[in-house]
Simulated assay, not measured.
Amino acid sequence: MASLAQAPASRWIQPNTANGSKIWGIRGGIGFSIWPNGVETGDKDDGGPRGLIRVGREVNGKFYLINFIAIEPIVDGRIEFSEISPSTVDDRWGKLFWTSDSQAADAYNPNLAKGVISHPDPAKPEVEQLTLYLFMEQFLHKANPYLKISIRSDRPDELCLEIFNKPNSAKMDRCALTATMGNYSRLRQLHLNDEVVDSRKLYNDYKGIDFIEKQSYPADKFLKTVDGSLIAIATPNESSAELASWPNTKAYADRAGWRYRVPIKLTQYWRKDAGNYDPSLELRVNGRAKYWAVASRDPNAYVDIPGGPAFENFELREKYSSGQKFYFGITTKSAEELLK
Rank of each mutant, 00 (worst) to 15 (best):
E128L: 06
L177H: 02
A170N: 13
L161P: 00
L140P: 07
L159D: 03
N183V: 05
L161D: 01
N165I: 08
F164Q: 06
T131L: 05
L177W: 01
R174C: 09
R174V: 12
L147G: 02
H141A: 15
L161Q: 00
C175P: 01
L134W: 03
R155I: 07
P145R: 02
Y133D: 01
S153Q: 06
Y184G: 01
S150N: 11
A123K: 15
K124F: 15
T178A: 15
L177D: 00
L132P: 00
R155M: 12
M181K: 11
P125M: 12
K142S: 09
P145D: 08
M181W: 10
S169H: 13
P145F: 03
M136A: 05
I151P: 00
P125G: 13
S185R: 12
T131G: 06
E126G: 15
A123C: 14
S185D: 07
L177P: 05
I163L: 08
R155C: 08
A179F: 01
L132V: 08
N183Q: 14
D121P: 01
A176K: 00
M181S: 12
A123N: 11
Y146H: 06
D157P: 08
D121S: 10
E158S: 09
R155D: 09
F164E: 06
Y146D: 01
F135S: 01
A143K: 02
P156Q: 08
R155H: 12
S169E: 12
I117V: 13
E137F: 08
K142V: 11
V127C: 10
N183G: 12
Q129W: 05
I151N: 02
S169R: 10
S169F: 03
L147R: 01
D173R: 04
S153R: 01
A176R: 03
C160V: 08
L159Y: 04
A176E: 06
R174I: 09
R174M: 14
A143H: 00
L159H: 02
Y146M: 06
N183S: 14
K124R: 13
I163P: 00
F164V: 05
P125F: 13
K171Q: 15
S150Q: 04
D154L: 10
P120T: 10
Y146R: 06
P156N: 09
N168C: 06
N144E: 13
M136D: 01
K142P: 00
E158M: 11
A170H: 04
V127Q: 04
L130H: 03
K171N: 14
D173A: 09
S153K: 04
P125S: 15
P145S: 10
F164C: 05
A176F: 05
I151Y: 03
E128C: 10
E158Y: 07
K171I: 12
D173N: 14
I149P: 02
D121E: 10
E137A: 09
E162K: 13
D154K: 05
A176L: 06
S185I: 06
F139K: 03
L134K: 02
S169M: 10
L147Y: 00
K166H: 15
Y184S: 02
E128R: 07
I151H: 05
L177I: 09
K124L: 15
M181G: 08
P125C: 14
T131A: 11
P167W: 07
L134T: 02
D154A: 08
S118G: 11
F135I: 07
S150A: 14
P156T: 11
Y133M: 07
G182R: 02
Y184D: 02
